[in-house]
Nucleic acid binder design. Sequence first.
DNA 1: GTTGATGCAAAATTTTTGCAAGATG
DNA 2: CATCTTGCAAAAATTTTGCATCAAC
Lengths: 149, 149
Amino acid sequence: MSNEKLTKIEQLCRDKNLKMTGQRKVIAQVLSESEDHPTVEEVYERASSIDGNISLATVYRTVRLLEEENILQSHDFGDGRSRYEEWEDFDNHHHHLIDLESGKIIEFRNDELEILKEKIADELGYKLIDHKLELYGVPVDSKRNPGKK
Amino acid sequence: MSNEKLTKIEQLCRDKNLKMTGQRKVIAQVLSESEDHPTVEEVYERASSIDGNISLATVYRTVRLLEEENILQSHDFGDGRSRYEEWEDFDNHHHHLIDLESGKIIEFRNDELEILKEKIADELGYKLIDHKLELYGVPVDSKRNPGKK
DNA sequence: GTTGATGCAAAATTTTTGCAAGATG
DNA sequence: CATCTTGCAAAAATTTTGCATCAAC
């Protein structure tokens, strides 16, 4: 019973020889278990509920580190705070549709898009490192009952 | 010689019956003439050089208003500040490739992408209101002389 | 042991707001 | 002249940092 319960993020950290402090293990666990896109504050709250000995500054430093190591990706969905999510493998690369009525975030992936974006970058003379597509929309049903605006 | 020199943004404001104060006219002019993606601070500096009687708070309030009116769109290119740019007509809808080595921002448009994104939203049951694609890459030449990382 | 990580509190940055005064339509 | 906008300064919100202490390897 040594490494059998490592979360994916903790495993990636170990692969990169990052020091695994108690705080980092908890933050890694929180992020690996999160299925949404938590803000730093939310990561801090979830981590604190597991281990009270974690400071907000450490969460900020840790997510920054994990982003630099390409373990996390950050998002800006337009509300002024950065949100974080585990980087997916190539096969799971996905994007987001933000429901402008409910604020709900829908993940999707699309192979045509994956191919197209490589092509676009190539035509511009670039090798693609990262990319993000965000769609903002309203449910088609609500076209008939226009809310505000 | 009445309205012949109105900038596009000022015209859009008038169409929406927004009060056209001196400050708003200057900010509209700055934004219409900008070909980059200025931050609020940059808009403030450019506006101040035309008319010293404009405060930073007014620039913040004005870009927020123009964004709500769908006259401006905001971007987050990952440096913690919002950047603004005039909304383009449908035919000029474009996206951005961020050069990770130089920080340069390259605009492009792609018809295939415009079609594909509508299709994706449609399949998810949404009517598309807005969207943004950002590509992050390095020039292909630099693959041979890898800089840092 | 060396090196790097943490907590705390202070500071830096970006953005918002209350309010009295002023400008617009 | 009623309503909305502005400037100012203060406050809010988010993120970063200096430094002494502590933990990982």
